[in-house]
Simulated assay, not measured.
Amino acid sequence: MKLYGITGWKNSGKTGLVERIVTEICSRGHSVSTIKHAHHDADVDQPGRDSHRHRQAGAREVLLATPHRWALMHELRGAAEPPLPDLLAQMSPVDLILIEGCKTEPHPKIEAFRQANGRVPLAGQNATIRAVASDCAMPDVAVPIFDLNDTTAIADFILREVGL
């Protein structure tokens, strides 16, 4: 499986960019999965639902199955967050896995950048960032710069980078 990341500061447009790239690459006939890393607590389950009640009771894993999808929730119960390779081992084979977040992991990435955030670009400080998708000109950045909304060009770049 090929890996490519989308990284950037909070509110830089990462999720929207991932969504558009997934749509674009899938429309070209490739299979794509995603990993979303969050630094904060997030819950995909709903209080009061049976699966949530199972987790609250202490289950280590709860697999929810429906006629349309299944989801496996694994509670760490105080254990350390698993490293990215362990998470990738849980994924079914696809052509490309897009990883949102994981700034410090070694896979190649595109940085989503919005000038309004008032932050310094990560590109230049992080050698795994191969390009920037930005809403402004960035003459001092040494990697390719794409318009944040030019999904076709960004998808072309990623597919070239991973050899698909």
Rank of each mutant, 00 (worst) to 15 (best):
T34V: 12
I35E: 03
I35H: 00
K36G: 03
H37A: 05
H37V: 05
A38F: 10
H40Q: 01
D41Y: 11
V44H: 04
D45Y: 06
D45H: 03
Q46G: 02
Q46N: 08
G48A: 04
R49I: 04
R49H: 10
S51L: 11
H52C: 02
R53C: 05
R53M: 11
H54D: 00
Q56G: 04
Q56H: 10
A57I: 14
A59R: 04
R60F: 03
E61A: 10
E61Q: 14
E61K: 12
E61R: 08
V62Y: 12
L63T: 12
L64W: 04
L64T: 10
A65G: 01
T66Y: 02
P67N: 01
R69Q: 13
A71L: 12
H74W: 06
H74E: 11
E75P: 12
R77K: 09
R77L: 06
A80D: 15
E81N: 05
E81Q: 05
E81G: 01
E81S: 05
E81F: 02
D86E: 13
D86N: 07
L87Y: 09
Q90E: 13
S92D: 08
S92T: 05
P93E: 14
V94Y: 10
V94R: 14
D95K: 07
L96I: 08
I97Q: 02
I99Q: 06
I99T: 07
I99F: 07
E100C: 02
G101W: 11
G101E: 13
C102R: 12
C102N: 11
K103T: 04
E105D: 14
H107M: 15
H107T: 11
H107C: 06
I110M: 12
I110W: 08
I110Y: 06
E111S: 09
E111P: 09
F113L: 08
F113W: 11
F113I: 06
R114S: 06
Q115C: 01
A116W: 07
A116S: 15
N117T: 15
G118V: 14
R119P: 09
V120W: 12
P121V: 01
P121M: 03
P121Q: 04
P121N: 07
A123K: 03
A123D: 04
G124S: 05
Q125D: 10
N126K: 13
T128C: 15
T128H: 15
T128Y: 15
R130Y: 00
V132D: 02
A133Q: 12
A133F: 08
A133H: 09
S134T: 09
D135W: 09
D135S: 10
C136R: 08
C136W: 07
M138H: 05
P139G: 07
P139D: 10
D140K: 01
D140Y: 02
D140S: 06
V141K: 00
V141R: 01
A142V: 00
A142T: 05
A142Y: 02
A142E: 12
V143F: 14
F146W: 06
D147F: 12
L148C: 03
L148R: 13
L148Q: 10
T152K: 09
A153W: 08
I154H: 00
I154V: 01
I154G: 00
L159I: 09
L159S: 03
R160Y: 06
R160N: 14
E161D: 04
G163K: 10
